[in-house]
Protein backbone atom coordinates (compact mmCIF):
# COMPACT_ATOMS: atom_id res chain seq x y z
CA UNK A 1 0.00 0.00 0.00
CA UNK A 2 1.07 3.53 -0.72
CA UNK A 3 0.69 4.86 2.82
CA UNK A 4 1.81 1.95 5.02
CA UNK A 5 3.61 4.21 7.50
CA UNK A 6 0.64 6.45 8.19
CA UNK A 7 -1.77 3.52 8.35
CA UNK A 8 0.40 1.63 10.82
CA UNK A 9 0.85 4.72 13.02
CA UNK A 10 -2.93 5.12 13.25
CA UNK A 11 -3.43 1.38 13.81
CA UNK A 12 -0.89 1.35 16.62
CA UNK A 13 -2.58 4.31 18.31
CA UNK A 14 -5.93 2.50 18.12
CA UNK A 15 -4.81 -0.94 19.25
CA UNK A 16 -2.51 0.34 22.01
CA UNK A 17 -4.97 3.09 22.99
CA UNK A 18 -2.25 5.70 23.07
CA UNK A 19 -2.90 8.93 21.20
CA UNK A 20 -0.30 10.14 18.71
CA UNK A 21 0.64 13.64 17.51
CA UNK A 22 -1.22 14.65 14.36
CA UNK A 23 0.15 13.10 11.15
CA UNK A 24 0.65 16.52 9.57
CA UNK A 25 3.37 17.20 12.16
CA UNK A 26 5.37 14.31 10.67
CA UNK A 27 4.12 14.72 7.09
CA UNK A 28 3.63 18.46 6.49
CA UNK A 29 2.55 17.88 2.88
CA UNK A 30 -0.49 15.80 3.90
CA UNK A 31 -3.47 17.03 1.87
CA UNK A 32 -7.14 16.00 1.75
CA UNK A 33 -6.74 13.74 -1.29
CA UNK A 34 -3.88 11.83 0.33
CA UNK A 35 -5.83 11.73 3.60
CA UNK A 36 -8.81 10.01 1.92
CA UNK A 37 -6.35 7.49 0.39
CA UNK A 38 -4.95 6.77 3.85
CA UNK A 39 -8.52 6.37 5.13
CA UNK A 40 -9.47 3.98 2.29
CA UNK A 41 -6.42 1.80 2.94
CA UNK A 42 -7.66 1.19 6.50
CA UNK A 43 -11.10 -0.08 5.45
CA UNK A 44 -10.11 -3.72 5.19
CA UNK A 45 -8.93 -3.75 8.81
CA UNK A 46 -12.38 -3.15 10.31
CA UNK A 47 -14.50 -5.95 8.88
CA UNK A 48 -17.23 -5.70 6.25
CA UNK A 49 -18.29 -2.21 5.20
CA UNK A 50 -21.67 -1.31 6.74
CA UNK A 51 -21.97 2.37 5.91
CA UNK A 52 -20.64 5.87 6.26
CA UNK A 53 -20.43 8.79 8.66
CA UNK A 54 -20.26 12.52 8.15
CA UNK A 55 -18.22 15.00 10.15
CA UNK A 56 -17.84 18.77 10.42
CA UNK A 57 -21.43 19.24 9.27
CA UNK A 58 -22.31 22.28 11.36
CA UNK A 59 -21.63 25.74 9.97
CA UNK A 60 -20.32 26.77 13.39
CA UNK A 61 -17.75 23.97 13.35
CA UNK A 62 -16.86 24.68 9.71
CA UNK A 63 -16.23 28.35 10.47
CA UNK A 64 -14.25 27.39 13.56
CA UNK A 65 -11.85 25.26 11.55
CA UNK A 66 -11.97 27.45 8.43
CA UNK A 67 -13.56 25.06 5.93
CA UNK A 68 -16.81 25.19 3.96
CA UNK A 69 -17.51 21.48 3.45
CA UNK A 70 -18.00 18.44 5.66
CA UNK A 71 -15.84 15.30 5.69
CA UNK A 72 -16.74 11.61 5.64
CA UNK A 73 -15.49 8.35 7.02
CA UNK A 74 -16.46 4.69 6.66
CA UNK A 75 -18.29 2.42 9.09
CA UNK A 76 -17.51 -1.27 9.26
CA UNK A 77 -18.37 -4.26 11.41
CA UNK A 78 -15.95 -3.34 14.19
CA UNK A 79 -17.65 0.04 14.70
CA UNK A 80 -21.06 -1.41 15.51
CA UNK A 81 -22.55 -1.45 19.00
CA UNK A 82 -25.79 -3.40 19.18
CA UNK A 83 -28.80 -2.09 21.09
CA UNK A 84 -28.19 -2.60 24.80
CA UNK A 85 -24.50 -3.33 24.32
CA UNK A 86 -22.37 -1.17 26.63
CA UNK A 87 -19.47 0.98 25.51
CA UNK A 88 -16.31 -0.35 27.12
CA UNK A 89 -14.46 2.89 27.74
CA UNK A 90 -11.11 1.14 28.28
CA UNK A 91 -11.20 -0.06 24.66
CA UNK A 92 -10.92 3.55 23.51
CA UNK A 93 -8.59 6.51 23.90
CA UNK A 94 -10.84 9.48 24.66
CA UNK A 95 -14.43 8.69 23.68
CA UNK A 96 -17.03 11.42 23.14
CA UNK A 97 -20.73 10.95 22.33
CA UNK A 98 -23.02 12.92 20.05
CA UNK A 99 -26.62 12.45 18.85
CA UNK A 100 -27.23 11.89 15.16
CA UNK A 101 -29.99 11.14 12.70
CA UNK A 102 -29.15 7.80 11.05
CA UNK A 103 -30.32 6.97 7.53
CA UNK A 104 -30.91 3.35 6.60
CA UNK A 105 -30.57 3.16 2.82
CA UNK A 106 -33.31 1.23 1.01
CA UNK A 107 -31.88 1.11 -2.49
CA UNK A 108 -28.54 1.78 -4.18
CA UNK A 109 -27.90 5.47 -4.76
CA UNK A 110 -24.98 7.05 -6.57
CA UNK A 111 -24.21 10.01 -8.78
CA UNK A 112 -22.45 13.36 -8.88
CA UNK A 113 -25.71 15.34 -8.86
CA UNK A 114 -27.78 13.64 -6.17
CA UNK A 115 -29.91 15.95 -4.02
CA UNK A 116 -31.62 15.68 -0.64
CA UNK A 117 -34.91 14.76 -2.32
CA UNK A 118 -33.36 11.73 -4.00
CA UNK A 119 -31.72 10.70 -0.73
CA UNK A 120 -35.09 10.73 1.03
CA UNK A 121 -36.56 8.68 -1.84
CA UNK A 122 -33.84 6.04 -1.47
CA UNK A 123 -34.11 5.92 2.34
CA UNK A 124 -35.90 2.97 3.95
CA UNK A 125 -35.84 4.42 7.45
CA UNK A 126 -34.41 7.06 9.74
CA UNK A 127 -33.44 6.48 13.36
CA UNK A 128 -31.90 8.20 16.34
CA UNK A 129 -28.30 7.20 16.90
CA UNK A 130 -25.40 7.87 19.22
CA UNK A 131 -21.98 8.12 17.66
CA UNK A 132 -18.97 7.55 19.85
CA UNK A 133 -16.07 9.57 18.49
CA UNK A 134 -12.53 8.60 19.41
CA UNK A 135 -9.68 10.58 17.94
CA UNK A 136 -6.37 8.83 17.62
CA UNK A 137 -4.69 12.22 18.00
CA UNK A 138 -3.70 13.82 21.30
CA UNK A 139 -6.55 15.97 22.72
CA UNK A 140 -8.47 15.88 19.40
CA UNK A 141 -5.92 18.32 17.93
CA UNK A 142 -5.82 17.89 14.16
CA UNK A 143 -6.07 19.57 10.76
CA UNK A 144 -8.79 18.57 8.29
CA UNK A 145 -6.44 16.15 6.42
CA UNK A 146 -5.40 14.64 9.78
CA UNK A 147 -8.97 13.90 10.85
CA UNK A 148 -9.88 12.54 7.41
CA UNK A 149 -6.90 10.17 7.55
CA UNK A 150 -8.12 9.10 11.01
CA UNK A 151 -11.47 8.08 9.49
CA UNK A 152 -13.22 11.21 10.76
CA UNK A 153 -12.58 10.13 14.39
CA UNK A 154 -14.97 7.18 13.96
CA UNK A 155 -15.18 5.06 17.11
CA UNK A 156 -18.42 3.17 17.66
CA UNK A 157 -22.09 3.81 17.04
CA UNK A 158 -25.50 2.53 18.09
CA UNK A 159 -28.73 2.94 16.15
CA UNK A 160 -32.30 2.97 17.51
CA UNK A 161 -35.38 1.61 15.76
CA UNK A 162 -35.80 3.08 12.26
CA UNK A 163 -39.09 4.66 11.19
CA UNK A 164 -40.15 5.50 7.61
CA UNK A 165 -38.94 8.98 6.59
CA UNK A 166 -42.13 9.97 4.77
CA UNK A 167 -43.92 12.95 6.26
CA UNK A 168 -41.10 13.83 8.67
CA UNK A 169 -39.45 17.24 8.50
CA UNK A 170 -36.00 16.19 9.67
CA UNK A 171 -34.95 19.84 9.72
CA UNK A 172 -37.23 20.66 12.63
CA UNK A 173 -37.23 17.53 14.79
CA UNK A 174 -36.02 18.34 18.30
CA UNK A 175 -32.88 16.65 19.61
CA UNK A 176 -32.03 16.19 23.29
CA UNK A 177 -28.79 14.73 24.65
CA UNK A 178 -28.76 13.62 28.27
CA UNK A 179 -25.78 12.53 30.34
CA UNK A 180 -26.51 10.92 33.70
CA UNK A 181 -30.15 12.00 33.45
CA UNK A 182 -29.32 15.67 32.93
CA UNK A 183 -29.95 17.56 29.70
CA UNK A 184 -26.53 18.58 28.40
CA UNK A 185 -27.39 19.83 24.90
CA UNK A 186 -30.32 20.35 22.56
CA UNK A 187 -30.64 20.99 18.84
CA UNK A 188 -32.87 20.36 15.88
CA UNK A 189 -32.11 18.33 12.75
CA UNK A 190 -31.09 21.46 10.84
CA UNK A 191 -27.86 21.51 12.85
CA UNK A 192 -26.39 19.17 10.23
CA UNK A 193 -25.84 21.22 7.04
CA UNK A 194 -29.30 22.79 7.34
CA UNK A 195 -30.96 19.42 6.65
CA UNK A 196 -29.58 15.93 7.41
CA UNK A 197 -30.69 14.62 3.98
CA UNK A 198 -28.62 17.39 2.36
CA UNK A 199 -25.62 16.11 4.32
CA UNK A 200 -26.21 12.59 2.97
CA UNK A 201 -26.60 13.98 -0.56
CA UNK A 202 -23.20 15.67 -0.18
CA UNK A 203 -21.73 12.29 0.79
CA UNK A 204 -23.21 10.59 -2.29
CA UNK A 205 -21.77 13.28 -4.57
CA UNK A 206 -18.33 12.94 -2.91
CA UNK A 207 -18.38 9.15 -3.21
CA UNK A 208 -19.19 9.51 -6.93
CA UNK A 209 -15.76 11.09 -7.40
CA UNK A 210 -14.17 7.74 -6.54
CA UNK A 211 -16.77 5.71 -8.42
CA UNK A 212 -18.59 4.65 -5.27
CA UNK A 213 -22.10 5.09 -3.93
CA UNK A 214 -24.51 4.01 -1.22
CA UNK A 215 -25.76 0.40 -1.22
CA UNK A 216 -29.11 -0.83 -0.01
CA UNK A 217 -28.86 -1.76 3.66
CA UNK A 218 -26.02 0.61 4.45
CA UNK A 219 -26.36 3.14 7.27
CA UNK A 220 -25.27 6.76 7.13
CA UNK A 221 -24.61 8.78 10.28
CA UNK A 222 -25.61 12.20 8.99
CA UNK A 223 -23.51 14.36 11.32
CA UNK A 224 -23.35 15.30 15.00
CA UNK A 225 -26.22 17.59 16.00
CA UNK A 226 -24.70 18.91 19.25
CA UNK A 227 -21.21 19.30 20.60
CA UNK A 228 -19.80 15.87 21.52
CA UNK A 229 -19.66 15.14 25.25
CA UNK A 230 -16.73 13.23 26.80
CA UNK A 231 -17.80 10.04 28.60
CA UNK A 232 -16.21 7.82 31.23
CA UNK A 233 -17.04 4.48 32.81
CA UNK A 234 -20.34 4.65 34.71
CA UNK A 235 -21.89 7.29 32.45
CA UNK A 236 -25.24 6.73 30.76
CA UNK A 237 -25.93 8.65 27.57
CA UNK A 238 -29.44 9.03 26.14
CA UNK A 239 -30.18 10.62 22.78
CA UNK A 240 -33.81 11.45 22.03
CA UNK A 241 -35.17 12.80 18.76
CA UNK A 242 -38.79 13.87 18.40
CA UNK A 243 -40.75 11.35 16.28
CA UNK A 244 -37.76 8.97 16.15
CA UNK A 245 -37.64 7.94 19.80
CA UNK A 246 -34.54 7.47 21.92
CA UNK A 247 -31.49 5.29 22.28
CA UNK A 248 -29.44 4.69 25.40
CA UNK A 249 -25.79 3.86 25.81
CA UNK A 250 -24.23 2.68 29.06
CA UNK A 251 -20.49 3.23 29.49
CA UNK A 252 -18.57 0.57 31.42
Amino acid sequence: MAHDVEVSMLRAARTERVAIPQLSDTFPSLDLLTAYEIQAEQRAGFGPLVGWKLGVTSRAKQQQVGVDAPIYGFLAGDHVLDLGEPLVVAEHISPRCEPEIVFVIGRDLSGAHVTATEVLGATAGVAVGIEVLDSRYTDYRFTMPDVVADNASAGRYVVGTPVPPHGLDLRLVGVVLELGGEVVATASGAASLGHPAAAVAWLVRELAASGEGLRAGEVVLSGGLTAAVPVSAGDVVVATIDRLGSVELACR
Binding site: G174, S188, G189, A190, A191
Partner: peptide, 27 residues
Protein backbone atom coordinates in the same frame (compact mmCIF):
# COMPACT_ATOMS: atom_id res chain seq x y z
CA UNK B 1 -46.78 18.71 20.99
CA UNK B 2 -44.14 17.32 23.31
CA UNK B 3 -42.79 20.50 24.88
CA UNK B 4 -39.53 18.74 25.81
CA UNK B 5 -38.79 17.57 22.31
CA UNK B 6 -40.16 20.37 20.16
CA UNK B 7 -37.34 21.38 17.79
CA UNK B 8 -36.41 24.92 16.78
CA UNK B 9 -34.28 26.61 14.14
CA UNK B 10 -33.32 30.28 14.17
CA UNK B 11 -32.24 31.74 10.85
CA UNK B 12 -30.75 35.17 10.21
CA UNK B 13 -31.18 36.36 6.62
CA UNK B 14 -31.88 32.78 5.59
CA UNK B 15 -28.74 31.36 7.19
CA UNK B 16 -28.95 29.00 10.11
CA UNK B 17 -27.93 30.84 13.29
CA UNK B 18 -28.70 28.14 15.83
CA UNK B 19 -30.94 25.20 16.71
CA UNK B 20 -32.41 23.86 19.93
CA UNK B 21 -35.21 21.90 21.56
CA UNK B 22 -37.62 22.61 24.40
CA UNK B 23 -35.61 20.61 26.93
CA UNK B 24 -33.01 23.40 26.93
CA UNK B 25 -35.38 25.28 29.26
CA UNK B 26 -35.02 23.58 32.67
CA UNK B 27 -35.46 20.19 30.99
Amino acid sequence: VDTRLVGMTLTRNGELADTGAGAAALG
